[in-house]
Design a protein around this nucleic acid. Sequence first.
DNA 1: TATTGTTATACTCTATAACTATA
DNA 2: TATAGTTATAGAGTATAACAATA
Lengths: 140, 140
Amino acid sequence: MKEGPVLEQLIGYQLKMAHLQLSAAAHCVSKPFGISPAKLAALLLIRANPGCDQAMLGRALEVNRSSTMKLVNILAERGLVERRAGRDQRSNALHLTEEGSVTIERMIVALHEAETAALDQLSADEQQVLMDLLKKVRRR
Amino acid sequence: MKEGPVLEQLIGYQLKMAHLQLSAAAHCVSKPFGISPAKLAALLLIRANPGCDQAMLGRALEVNRSSTMKLVNILAERGLVERRAGRDQRSNALHLTEEGSVTIERMIVALHEAETAALDQLSADEQQVLMDLLKKVRRR
DNA sequence: TATTGTTATACTCTATAACTATA
DNA sequence: TATAGTTATAGAGTATAACAATA
């Protein structure tokens, strides 16, 4: 089965297929902990921004408030995240629980191992170039 | 909102965010034609492999037979694809209809324009390097 | 036995819309 | 008016499981 000249030359398509591969790796990492790659990303964002509110989190993940709500509900049910009083009466402050902190450190180790394995056909230099180009794509 | 040192250095995450951006561009292209980016990719695969069967298409798209079925059903409903007799009695041969052929050529033009616009912060050289690296990630 | 197509079913993710409380 | 959270609902995408026909 050929991809053909059009698909083969579409960066969007190559991006999709590469992402499919890396997200499978992330899935293997997060599944044993009972969460999805997207929820793992949410945990990492809360870890980097303790006290952030759901609206901020949703903007960073590029999902809407309703979806963010569900995300945080599940992380809270799992005992990984807790909602504390925010600066407003409207918003709440998201924090990792003690269990969440311990858990995510273990996930980070597994995540780096999984990325290394999934990207072993690229040299360290190539990985850096890829990273820089991907960031540049996002800079708008 | 910071991404933090972990997310920022995860190629899988940068890949996801870049893909999100490019798939939004692909969505703008395919939506006026009433289909999704994934279905557009399916059309391009059928265009490059006339007479392929659903199993082949599904493997190329990395979705299962059941999902492929739904995909092809919709493309057939839209009058863009038709199922003809395959070499087996089991399989059928997928072909673009006359309308499908005309439509996809127009989508290809729009697709190239959308990619160009979405990637205008990268030089032609950088785009080529990115393309090569993404293909290399997939080579397993 | 293995493969292709098919159907029924369910799950995940995400979005929209409407509502409440607060600013 | 605008923002944060919440809830109910719906849609898209995809997976699993089972079955029939064919190889």
